[in-house]
């Protein structure tokens, strides 16, 4: 037999092992949790409250930071300048630094002694231990996903279409909202979903800014520390299910739009 023929088989086996590696811990956790435990947990007010908090804070962080992140992506896609590589590197920085370290950095940035902290205090807002602080921590670690996806999207929009729109008398801002953004929307939406999903799962940075109010990843950690694996597992399962439902829902929404466009 030709030795080349083994290649697909070896690749399938190796690939299958990796898939198994991803699926089996999750599956094990699901199987180890009884329906009764799930039912109890999903009625636990502390769990419900924390899931809602996690969902809305991540959503709010995504929406608020998108206001600046999308124009930045457009700028990076359209402008050539000397230190662009450095700027692109800065955008990716939150992905590569340890999230607990990111949390420490953000704490310095939003604490009462900082400029931002002082501005917050004057408005009666203390970021530490507040959903606003959680949102900042979530946004810090998840914003590269949005910026990178949106930048790729804008790069794929032919500059010529924008020029054609300008030549038809549209102002640059109208061109952005009627040509560039709609044509890059698939990538932008995908980036928004990724940023939202990444925000939901953030633990390291958030725990340093706000132990309370408790987002679900911290609640899971606390239940594990205080009561052990048995009590942490059902919360994890419920939260994963919620995250997956949202993720699938948003993805299918994005896909529906894509097929509609086609």
């Amino acid at each position: 037999m030709n030795p080349k023929n083994h290649t697909p088989l070896i690749f399938t086996l190796l690939g299958g092992l990796i898939l198994l590696f991803i699926v089996s811990p999750l599956l094990g956790m699901f199987l180890a949790t009884t329906p009764a435990q799930l039912f109890e947990t999903s009625k636990d007010p502390e769990v419900v409250k924390s899931i809602w908090l996690t969902l809305w804070v991540s959503f709010a962080a995504t929406m608020i930071f998108a206001i600046g992140a999308i124009p930045l992506s457009y700028f990076l896609a359209r402008t050539k300048f000397r230190f662009k590589g450095i700027i692109n590197g800065i955008v990716d920085l939150p992905i590569v630094i340890p999230h607990s370290a990111a949390g420490i950095a953000i704490l310095g940035f939003v604490s009462r002694d900082s400029v931002l902290g002082k501005i917050g205090s004057s408005l009666g807002l203390n970021f530490v231990g507040h959903p606003a602080g959680i949102a900042i921590a979530m946004a810090f670690v998840s914003i590269p996903f949005l910026i990178n996806a949106a930048r790729d999207g804008f790069e794929n929009v032919p500059v010529r279409l924008e020029k054609a729109a300008l030549n038809l008398g549209a102002s640059p801002i109208r061109v952005f909202f009627t040509i560039s953004l709609p044509l890059a929307w698939k990538n932008v939406l995908s980036g928004l979903i990724m940023m939202f999903a990444r925000g939901l799962s953030e633990f390291g940075a958030v725990i340093i800014i706000a132990y309370h109010p408790m987002i679900t990843p911290i609640l899971i950690f606390e239940r594990f520390g205080a009561f052990g694996l048995k009590y942490a597992r059902p919360v994890s399962v419920v939260f994963i299910v919620v995250c997956l439902v949202f993720f699938v829902l948003l993805r299918s929404l994005a896909k529906e739009r894509k097929s509609h466009d086609a």
Binding site: P158, A164, A165, P172, I179, L183
Partner: peptide
Amino acid sequence: KIQKRKVGIVFQDYSVFPH
């Protein structure tokens, strides 16, 4: 500015907005 020139260009690739 491009948008104020009153000269209209029709490109070779048409540049019709696909969306």
